[in-house]
Design a protein around this nucleic acid. Sequence first.
DNA 1: GAAGAACCATACGCCACCGTATGGAAGAAT
DNA 2: ATTCTTCCATACGGTGGCGTATGGTTCTTC
Lengths: 186, 186
Amino acid sequence: MGRLNADDWARAALGALAEGGLRAVAVEAVAARLGVSKGSFYWHFANRRALVEAALRLWESDTEAVIAELERIADPTRRLRTLLEVALGEPTDAAVSFWLISGADDPAVADVARRVTDRRMGVMKDALRQLGQSEEEARARVVAGYGSYLGVAALIRIGAVDSVPATFADQALAEMGVPVEGFGAS
Amino acid sequence: MGRLNADDWARAALGALAEGGLRAVAVEAVAARLGVSKGSFYWHFANRRALVEAALRLWESDTEAVIAELERIADPTRRLRTLLEVALGEPTDAAVSFWLISGADDPAVADVARRVTDRRMGVMKDALRQLGQSEEEARARVVAGYGSYLGVAALIRIGAVDSVPATFADQALAEMGVPVEGFGAS
DNA sequence: GAAGAACCATACGCCACCGTATGGAAGAAT
DNA sequence: ATTCTTCCATACGGTGGCGTATGGTTCTTC
């Protein structure tokens, strides 16, 4: 692993965050993960808080990159489906979202969690509006849909659900009022 | 508040758990909440772990009591609706569920979280089956529905949603395939 | 190859929280 | 009123994690 820079630490911190939550973003723990002592850490960062914030920035920019890709898809139905498939194929992300929400007593954490959430839900809402739904309808369905995404990730975590059901994407689309063949609502 | 017994401590611990998570179930903190020093605590409990487990038992039995009430409602649609209204009217419960899932690295916590989750989802699934849904369909919809419950609570926590939408109960029922007047799916 | 900069290890002090030890106050029993 | 039990306060030791101090090693630059 050679010498390290601040980005290496931020990546490692984000990894620790995904696995064990904010509590796992501990100086010595991340240092061990990098095969290094904390003497190294305090060269690159002023304190633990700065490391957490770096990891948060990294996560937010990752999300922003995914959205930028998504917005190149013109068809809203296909955009939503791609969004779901990307999200479900990256179980790490739901875990991070989950941990950040549970660490929302820290204002900096809550801010990022909220910004990212708003951004994602905004993208979803726009797609539903493009499909002809009213503002209120779209908002309500996005809340339920994105909430379901977070909640199911939580259920998987405790083993109450083996894995995300195969029909989840279709089901989610149907529940958001998006016409899907073979899964007509009700 | 006079003298205290173990139940008083368990209740206070459950309150702290709902507000600040497992981390907040700290001996000195709960003692302060009761206006007492930790010298009292170690009279009633062997250690912090015992307190956490007492709070968990309390929560599980509270859940069990609600379910016992619910099962006296014969009509599955009304039973489901009552369940939703009770759940949404008790924002504390979703918070506890959330904290316990995020503390699932502790096996004892994970066990309770999982048992309670299974129990609740079982009740919901039974109702849907009574309404004629197949096993797989009912299961998938309960996962999405209960997941949505947990997720929306999380969204509220970070302020991404002001409060649970007024139509949430109707919406949830509709999404679970329960016929609801004025909210026909799609 | 010497000097400076970049990077890292070790050792220490500090604080929060857990658990223990010990004595004291309040209630019950006689 | 005294004794026993129940309940609680205070004081202390132990541990884990954060941050600092200080010195060492590797890379760069001239």
